[in-house]
Amino acid sequence: MSYTAIIIPCYNEAERLDVELFTDFLNRFATFSLIFVDDGSKDKTLEKLEEIKTSTPQRVKIISNKINRGKAEAVRNGILTAYATGDFQQFGFLDADLSTPFSEFTDITDYMVNNNKKAVFGSRLKLEDAKIVRSPLRHIIGRIIAAFIRMTINTPFYDTQCGAKVFTSDIIEVAFNKPFISRWLFDVEIILRLKKHWKKDFGDLLYEYPIKEWNQVDGSKIRFIDMIKIPFELLKIKIKK
């Protein structure tokens, strides 16, 4: 049986964590475990996570950072912690607000396993039957960021920043062993690391999967100043790649 660890970074998520959705998922999918990384939250996030853990304590782990280290390091810490156990064949991460629902995450995982991919990234490509719900402003900002990414590092991806991605165990060290340069654009760094590692096989082993459902949840932790920094962070990533 194949087991998957889902890493969920959390920073002041008490108001957005839906305990019932998490516990229902754990009860229905016995091959998935949740690794929550509380990244220095100052609200009652940790209490909510403990509440989720009580339902299936053997498949929920909580990592608590005393200070905020950023989403990139929270995800990296969670994945490396799960990888060190030797219990999992797949590793992924998902946003705490479940803007990408669990149903899409399981589809992404199934696609990777059934199609011999090494990594599958969710993409909010709005196909005809897809239910992608986000404000016009968020959509415009997302496309501007995507354009900067394509121009700076020449990646063919439509949406590098969708918070749902899955990896096989044999590429975890390649993708996550080194700390990331950027707190928010670490997805781009992962792509570059895999591209450098796989070379000509890159296009065959990594797949951008168009998810069918995504819902914007208010309360994003990305500030306006973070968006201003994006071109400069991309330049740093390009120089150090």
Rank of each mutant, 00 (worst) to 15 (best):
I52A: 09
K42G: 10
I35Y: 13
E50V: 00
I62T: 02
I7M: 08
I35W: 15
T45C: 12
L49W: 06
E13F: 11
S33Y: 06
N68K: 13
I8F: 09
N65A: 10
K42E: 08
L46E: 00
D39S: 07
L26V: 00
T31S: 14
Q58T: 05
K48F: 03
L21V: 02
E47Y: 04
K66D: 07
L26A: 08
T31N: 15
F36N: 07
D24A: 13
L21G: 01
I7G: 06
G70F: 01
A14E: 15
L49T: 01
F25P: 09
S33H: 13
F22E: 10
N68V: 05
E47V: 03
E13Y: 14
V60M: 00
S41Q: 12
L46A: 14
T45L: 07
L17K: 13
T23Y: 09
N68Y: 11
K61R: 09
E51K: 15
I7D: 10
I35S: 05
F29I: 07
T56F: 09
N65W: 04
F36V: 02
R16E: 06
T31F: 09
A30V: 09
S55E: 11
G70D: 04
D43S: 09
E13K: 12
D24P: 01
E51V: 01
P57F: 01
I8V: 13
A30W: 03
E47N: 04
I7R: 10
F29E: 14
D43N: 14
E50R: 09
S55T: 13
A14Q: 08
E20R: 11
F25D: 11
Y11K: 15
E50P: 00
L26Q: 08
K44H: 05
R69S: 00
P9D: 09
N68H: 14
V37T: 12
E15F: 02
V37W: 07
T45P: 11
